[in-house]
Amino acid sequence: MAQNAKPRLAVWKFSSCDGCQLSLLDCEDELLAVAGAVEIANFPEASRAVGKGPYDLSLVEGSITTPHDAERIHRVRRLSKFLVTIGACATAGGIQALRNFHDVKNYISAVYPSPEFIETLSKSTPISDHVKVDMELRGCPINKYQLVEVLSAILNKRKPGISSHSVCIECKRRGTVCIMVAQGIPCLGPVTHAGCGAICPSYNRGCYGCFGPKETPNTESLAAQLTGLGVSDPDIVRAMRGFNACAEPFRKEGEAHER
């Protein structure tokens, strides 16, 4: 590919912790290759030099929580040929979407000494609620190998190898023993989207669903199973309300156990 024809990459931040963008900088071994393959035109976390749009590929981190965000995302969309959201915030509203279950004004007055300066929306919403999203990368944070995979796939014009089945399948492929069956430890793996490589069960703890709901998740059946393991209703609500609390299947299941 000729030097001047390099695809232009932009990285955007909305309400988020920066962890997902950092995954890109964390691609130590691949970072030079990334820098060689694309023109990093806009990535404030890495460089202050900002190249003007349009961009071939935009990676969007964070959720929409302020009126300003809600406007800015439309500009990002207009400047981007291909828009990929990265992480639980951009894809499902993130941990900050816990505000959606309560009146945000109460939080503001509890957290900020001068609440009158805070301009915020009542809900934290995913990017796809505002603009068309071409692809979503899950996780809190995303898996850096998945990020490189998406970049390579886009650069090489092929389908990215990103699966939406359960974490369990990854758990079994790597030969991890199911901690729910062998130890009775509650695990969200059966309803959670693959991508992390089943990290948590391999460290002897249950998946807490940071990749959000998988394709066709049966949260009701899992909740029944968790109840059988002695998990209380309030704890089922907590399990559903993590980084993907407002992803529809998790939100509904949480609410069903709230009564």
Partner: peptide, 8 residues
């Protein structure tokens, strides 16, 4: 209603 299609 019970199967989670988890593939285990």
């Amino acid at each position: 209603t019970r199967c989670m299609t988890c593939g285990n």
